[in-house]
């Protein structure tokens, strides 16, 4: 049994126009020390999955099917107080744009101290402060800058502080939601490398959320490709990038310009993603698919195993 298992998870949002099916029957598993990249274009449900794992869906959002099992325990069986306990201690999340959400009028180190004390009230302040010093060293921030305010930090430093905060309670799982999207490539590259090292050192499971498949392919050993709330393909990075089987994965890969190899024409995906409100039959990619089968318009395709750890949700494979 893997450290974190997500089984047939479906999540909906109540909206004025009806139920928005943001996540539909998504399954994956991550073990300690493993990294899974959740990749897909905006609106495909990546953040929603992260929030659901944290038990932090907004009031209009709820899990409408499936479950999440952490360390053998079904999280959906827990009450709010138990969940809060596990949250941050067991699973931490680096929220999308978190570096811009640091409190501007509080010193950065102090914000991390506070986060630690909230979850470990038994700790002495001194001790928490000491831990933050250790965290600063871990993420490559000068300890001397602990007492600076966020605006005195560069973007890269803020992101490191946010990573330090996520590491503060020694979580088993970290969900990193677009952690480097706002950064320039050189800083991004450094942070990705450091994150990878920390993950190995502490044997953390990482769920790495990104719209950028090139980043995910550098950081993660497994990839789950999402489209319109469904996970259309999942496997090791090698499987998914080496033999992409789902037409959407193939299309996505063909719409990214690469830096190496021969220059190839890109093939943009025509059309727009579907609306997620209302009843949907069949495969959600059908309208944009270059090779739709006759069956996929009617019934949602089953997840088909095409390799050792390689699964595809497509009737054509």
């Amino acid at each position: 049994m893997a450290l974190l298992e997500v089984n047939h998870l479906s999540i909906g949002y109540q909206t004025a126009k009806g139920l928005l099916r943001a996540v539909d029957d998504v399954s994956f598993a991550v073990d300690a020390g493993q990294s899974l990249g959740l990749v897909g274009e905006s609106g495909c449900g990546k953040t929603t999955i992260g929030m659901a794992l944290m038990g932090l869906l907004p009031p209009n959002g709820s899990i409408v099917g499936g479950n999440v099992v952490l360390d053998g325990q079904d999280l959906s069986g827990l009450d709010e107080a138990d969940l809060r306990q596990r949250r941050w201690r067991d699973i931490a999340m680096i929220f999308q744009a978190a570096m811009n959400a640091l409190n501007p009028v509080q010193r950065v180190g102090e914000q991390i101290v506070e986060a630690i004390l909230t979850h470990k009230p038994e700790l002495e302040r001194e001790e928490a402060l000491h831990q933050v010093e250790g965290l600063y060293q871990l993420v490559g921030l000068p300890v001397g800058r602990m007492h600076d305010f966020p605006h005195q930090y560069s973007g890269g430093m803020k992101q490191r502080a946010v990573i330090a905060m996520a590491l503060a309670l020694n979580p088993k799982v970290i969900i990193a939601d677009e952690p480097t999207t706002a950064l320039d490539v050189i800083v991004q590259d450094q942070i990705l490398k450091e994150t990878k090292e920390l993950q190995k050192e502490f044997n953390i499971a990482i769920i790495f959320i990104s719209h950028d498949i090139s980043i995910v392919s550098e950081v993660c050993e497994m990839i789950g490709v999402m489209y319109a709330g469904q996970m259309v393909e999942r496997g090791t990075t090698r499987e998914v990038l080496g033999q992409p089987r789902h037409p959407y994965t193939q299309a996505l890969l063909n719409s990214f310009p690469a830096l190496g190899g021969p220059r190839r024409p890109l093939r943009p995906i025509p059309g727009e993603p579907p609306l997620l409100i209302g009843r949907r039959f069949g495969c959600r990619f059908c309208d944009r698919c270059p090779v739709p089968a006759s069956s996929c318009k009617l019934e949602p395709p089953e997840l088909v195993q095409v390799g050792e750890t390689h699964f595809v949700r497509c009737d054509n494979v």
Binding site: V185, D189, F256, L259
Partner: peptide, 21 residues
Amino acid sequence: ALIDATPKFGDCGDVPRYNAL
């Protein structure tokens, strides 16, 4: 340095590393 830092993926062949940073 920019080229070193850009994620390489897909059909990229062998990529030189310059280590200029």
